[in-house]
């Protein structure tokens, strides 16, 4: 696994090809939009009965990152759960898996629009930078919410977007779609800069001027 190391507003960071962000100085592993419990929520609301394995799959990948990096803290940038009820009604196997992860290191949950109550905090500080679910104001902040993707070599790839004052992480959850990095909702916050695409390694590509 090869990450992409860079410095942003004085912070030395690494974009992981898993879609996570690594802050080696304090050993923080930051992930966005896990959407745990998504398939359960869809079924509860009378929708499709999707394969109920996305929680296990998401946590499997998160655990792999934790094993590789041994973080002190894992930060979930909001929408860690697909809704507040999903946080309560996690599959026993998923809850067990999550408890195992929480025993190994602290997990700090930031509230998202999907899980306003299940998330614990509105924002966190990472040096001069704010961590929150959605970008706000002048920044600098690091957020998620948009599930950004870019096209590379003929396919859509999840990507971490680095703009001058806002950084947006891709969704880490297994059942999450993507929004094109060139769409207005995103370019409003990241008009230009670099996208780090998640492939077998983290590949930086320039973002076009809007």
């Amino acid at each position: 696994m090869t990450g992409f190391a860079f410095t942003w507003h004085g912070l030395r960071l690494e974009a992981r090809c898993s879609g996570a962000l690594w802050w080696p100085e304090e050993r923080w592993l930051v992930v966005a939009d896990l959407h745990l419990g998504k398939s359960e929520r869809m079924a509860r609301r009378g929708g499709a009965l999707l394969p109920p394995y996305e929680g296990l799959e998401t946590l499997r990948r998160l655990e792999a990152e934790a094993e590789a990096l041994d973080p002190a803290v894992i930060v979930s940038l909001g929408d860690g759960f697909d809704d507040d009820a999903a946080a309560e009604a996690l599959e026993p196997q998923v809850a067990e898996h999550l408890a195992r992860l929480e025993a190994a290191q602290e997990i700090r949950w930031i509230a998202g629009n999907h899980d306003p109550r299940a998330g614990g905090e509105e924002t966190l500080r990472m040096g001069p930078v704010t961590l929150r679910h959605q970008p706000e104001g002048e920044g600098p902040d690091i957020s998620g919410h948009f599930h950004p993707v870019v096209r590379l070599a003929g396919a859509r790839r999840r990507a971490l977007l680095i703009g001058p004052s806002h950084m947006i992480l891709p969704a880490f959850g297994a059942y999450t779609g993507g929004l094109d990095a060139g769409s207005g909702a995103i370019t409003r916050w990241v008009p230009h800069g670099i996208a780090v695409a998640c492939l077998h390694k983290a590949l930086p590509v320039p973002l076009r001027a809007a």
Binding site: A5, F6, W8, H9, G163, P164, H192, A209
Partner: peptide, 20 residues
């Protein structure tokens, strides 16, 4: 885009604006 990045770009700060 005129961007040169290495894996350890200690001097690299906010990415330069990319122009058309």
């Amino acid at each position: 885009a005129g961007l040169q990045l290495t894996d350890d770009p200690s001097g690299f700060d906010a990415p330069a604006p990319v122009v058309a």
